[in-house]
Amino acid sequence: MPDPGWLQELLAAVLATVIAITLHEAAHGYAALGLGDPTAREAGRLSLNPLRHVDRVGTVLVPGVLLLGQLLTIGRVEFMFGWAKPVPVDMRRLRNPLQGMMLVAAAGPAMNFFLAWLAGMLLHLAVLGDSASPDSMTWAYRFLALSILANLVLGLFNLLPIPPLDGGRILAGLLPRSLALPYLRLERWGILLVLFAVFLLPRLVQGFDPVGWALRRVIANAFDLVLLLSGHAT
């Protein structure tokens, strides 16, 4: 049976995920604007309003299934995954198209890593206030821990060097133009390859579990690093 506090856990997880996804997309839009491309602003997507960035599958369905599944089985959230509707960027309007696209792509994960560090810093306040108001501070502590987790998962996942993920666009910016443009054409198939590897292969191939491996190794080590950089003993 799930813990009686499942509703508070759900609220903390949803809020942490929404903030991580919204600011990730907003960072892309503001970076593009700063580099000469106003497409996101013209489309009304240069916004901190989460509703402007909602993707019905990536922002609602997939995270919802993951969150409810974990709450109903283990009573807590240990993994979150999702995506938003991409902010439109026209690389032809950037002052330096390939390098500009690389910087725009890097802005999203950079925002997530900053937010993870900021949540780590705010944990100090939660710890200090715990004795004064245990219930509210316990929720704040859990929200901040989930914020670190959500931002690390979103930021690191997006650094995979597969278009249309940010890592693919960063790699394209480092490649010669003759290689970068054909590589970017993989964008229409890239997300299908990622979803196949993450969700389908573990069910088809026994022992193949990249998400579990990432949680045990990459995300766990990154979480410890964030705590270290924000002044917590690990």
Rank of each mutant, 00 (worst) to 15 (best):
R177T: 15
I74P: 01
Q8T: 12
R52H: 15
P182L: 03
V87N: 07
I219K: 04
S131R: 07
A40G: 12
T234F: 15
P176K: 10
T39I: 05
A26Q: 06
A222Q: 13
D166F: 06
L144K: 07
V218G: 12
R76F: 07
D3V: 04
T138M: 10
I74M: 01
L68Q: 00
I162D: 00
T73V: 09
F199I: 02
A150R: 09
L215Y: 11
L68E: 01
G58C: 01
L118S: 13
G155Q: 09
N112F: 14
V62Y: 03
A27I: 15
G173N: 05
P86W: 01
L171K: 06
S133E: 05
V77A: 04
W189K: 04
V89I: 10
L228G: 01
L229S: 11
P88A: 01
A106E: 05
V211A: 06
M80K: 04
L159V: 04
M80F: 04
G129A: 11
R93E: 09
A110L: 15
F81K: 12
L228S: 05
L215W: 08
W189G: 08
R92K: 11
P176N: 14
T22W: 07
V62R: 01
S147N: 11
F79G: 04
F157D: 00
A126N: 08
A43I: 12
A13L: 08
P163Q: 03
I191W: 09
L193P: 07
L175F: 15
L186R: 09
I21K: 00
T22P: 15
A220H: 11
